[in-house]
């Protein structure tokens, strides 16, 4: 097993394209666990943390570009980013312990393609784009189009995600992400839910996005959930309708972390609670 430390995206792409058994190392919080368990045996590990453009958070066209090697702790310490997209930052902040925060990245969380990835529903409702570099150049793809199944991505040969772009925060908008775990920390989401809303001048919800995690092989961006909110003030009736829609949209499995019935119920509960926070943020109340 070789260890490579490219200093440019082009070098990384060349290394990745040259070897189908190569693996990209960002924070390593998933990769090293798999290595240790013998689940993966790459021929080469490509550490992207020496590529300077991938280690920074920068403002771009009113939005934010977050390098693929930026650890979530750095996002949490970035006041301006947090002010614009608190839901995304909070979701990233939920990934593992303080120690994991020092290493784990948004791009890694996305490309690991776990159904339970905390940051993914939050990024999806924020309308985040993943920038992909590959042998044929660079392209931007909606975050929800990256995971294609449990542990699988739509990335082609030689491609890697180099950054995540969070668009400009719309006026009178807010986002939130909540997950359910059995403990208060250190668990994988049993259910996750991201909600983003924008309000019109009358305080009615003019746009909404709702995404559910850990209730299907990949994240669910639910139009039926969003429709329950759009045109309403986010009143109790709308929230109850949202909860019912989220429960209906969830297609979970029974496993060691939860039952189908529990996950469907809690998807509704979290949707309602996350929506309340997102609406309050849109109103500038939180």
């Amino acid at each position: 097993m070789r260890f490579e430390t490219p200093t440019s995206v082009d070098q990384a792409v060349a290394l990745l394209a040259a070897d189908p058994e190569a693996r990209v190392l960002a924070g390593g919080t998933d990769l090293l666990v798999r290595l240790r368990a013998g689940q993966v045996a790459p021929s080469v590990i490509i550490d992207i943390k020496r590529i300077s453009e991938m280690t920074v958070i920068s403002q771009e066209d009113g939005g934010w570009r977050i390098g693929a090697a930026v650890p979530s702790a750095e996002m949490n310490e970035h006041a301006a980013l947090k002010a614009d997209w608190p839901g995304v930052v909070e979701a990233a902040d939920l990934i593992g312990s303080t120690q994991i925060q020092g290493r784990a990245t948004l791009a890694g969380n996305l490309c690991n393609a776990s159904p339970a990835a905390d940051s993914v529903p939050a990024m999806v409702v924020a309308g985040a784009l993943a920038r992909i570099a590959g042998p044929n150049g660079t392209r931007d793809v909606a975050v929800q189009d990256i995971p294609s199944g449990v542990g699988k991505t739509s990335l082609g040969k030689g491609e890697l995600v180099t950054s995540i772009y969070l668009p400009p925060k719309p006026a009178h908008s807010g986002d939130a992400y909540l997950r359910f775990i059995p403990r208060s920390e250190m668990d994988i989401a049993v259910v996750g839910c991201g909600v983003a809303v924008a309000l019109d001048d009358q305080g009615k919800i003019s746009a909404a996005r709702v995404a559910l995690g850990a209730v299907a092989p990949t994240v669910i961006l639910s139009q039926s959930c969003a429709d329950t909110l759009i045109g309403t003030t986010g009143d109790d009736a709308a929230l109850d309708a949202l909860a019912a829609a989220a429960t209906a949209e969830a297609k979970p499995i029974d496993d060691k972390r939860g039952t189908i019935a529990f996950r469907k119920d809690v998807a509704g509960v979290l949707a309602k609670r996350a929506a309340k926070i997102a609406i309050a943020r849109a109103k500038g109340e939180a």
Partner: peptide
């Protein structure tokens, strides 16, 4: 590592250069 807490079991030794 460089001011941040990490689990040393989740970092390759080679990364420490």
């Amino acid at each position: 590592v460089d001011g941040r807490l990490v689990c040393s079991c989740l970092m390759l030794a080679a990364e420490a250069e």
